[in-house]
Amino acid sequence: MLRRTLLATAAAAAMATTAFGAEHAEKTKVGFIYVGPIGDGGWTYEHNKGRLAVEEEFGDAVETVYQESVPEGADAERAITQMALSGADLIFTTSFGYMDPTIAVAEKFPDVKFEHATGYKRADNVSTYSARFYEGRAIQGHIAGKMTETNKIGYIASFPIPEVIRGINSAYLHAKKVNPDVEFSIVWAYTWFDPAKEADAARALIENGADVILQHTDSTAPQAAAQEAGGIITFGQASDMSEFAPLPRVSSIIDDWAPYYIARTRAVMDGTWESTDTWDGIGPGMVGIGEISDAVPEDVKAEALAMKDAIASGEYHPFTGPINKQDGSVWLAEGEVADDGTLLGMDFYVEGLTGEIPN
């Protein structure tokens, strides 16, 4: 009798171990490499919200891991490699400078799926994805052009890559359209996330007369600097940054990565994942426009929301001619719409912007 009991106990233990092993083996491991801290209040904060949405969607069927504040370059390749070695099935690398490291690691791990944000290099196991941030910049430019009193708008730019240049051009075109006297001053911060440097850039622009500050950097430091100065208008970048509403932050561009992350994780889980390139905007919901605060006049708010709807429906494209390049040469004729190829490789300013794009 004792022998039977021991055998039964052993069999039950073996079955439990087997069940645990099967459950563990079936769990999909999804990794995220972040360029900033998850508490940056902007870019990385929104990517991490997407990670949390994956956990909520799939529960115990997934395990997510992340590494934050990973510098672009050699450090990124080491971090991505370590994540692949840890057993990740899918890895999202969430900054432009991770492009070459992602491709390099993907070659060594052909069975791991990789997703790179904002880049353009793909492979059989590497997809690319980004959002049409320039659509949101058009709306910000409209509001900025209408609300500036000094006619001086400051722009804190990160790195001189097409994504950032597109945003500057889009904001400027739409500010200029409603206010021919507007001038843009651009400060290149050469960082995605450095609160001290971002705050210094904002202060310098304000001291030079800018009463509107736009940013393509990831922290809320420019918002805080503007709040301290008083009488300055800002816009949230990548995240709502609504803690600074109704002033200085009057609206924002919000990056919503959650649906994409859920869809791509599901594709790995059900075996349908393929290398793709995704570039979505306001229409599909990857780019959101944060609530426009009461600090914005009602007529300007109505115009901004109408533009949002027109962009979302495809009725209006922010880069519609006539538009000249900075040197005065024709880029787009009357009614002509920019093609995605040119936008993805944009390396020029439009007419009216001053200064040169750094190398």
Rank of each mutant, 00 (worst) to 15 (best):
K325F: 08
L305M: 15
G335H: 12
A302M: 06
L353V: 12
I213C: 03
I292P: 00
G97D: 04
F92H: 03
E183C: 07
N179D: 07
S329F: 06
Q326W: 04
W192Q: 07
P110K: 10
E107L: 12
E336S: 10
I80K: 02
S86C: 05
T81V: 01
A171Y: 04
V187I: 15
Y34R: 11
D277K: 14
V62Y: 00
R78E: 11
T191F: 01
I161V: 15
A202D: 05
M307L: 15
E303D: 06
E23H: 11
R4K: 12
P71Q: 08
Q82G: 14
L344N: 14
F348N: 10
D340S: 04
G59E: 12
K29S: 08
T17A: 15
A14R: 02
Y129M: 04
T191G: 07
E56I: 05
G50D: 00
A196W: 10
D124M: 08
P318R: 08
T342Y: 03
L7Y: 09
D194H: 05
E56S: 11
E298G: 03
A106P: 12
A238L: 01
A138N: 04
K308E: 09
V268E: 03
E207H: 11
S185F: 06
A16M: 08
E68L: 00
T94Y: 00
A117Y: 00
L332H: 13
P101K: 04
E72W: 03
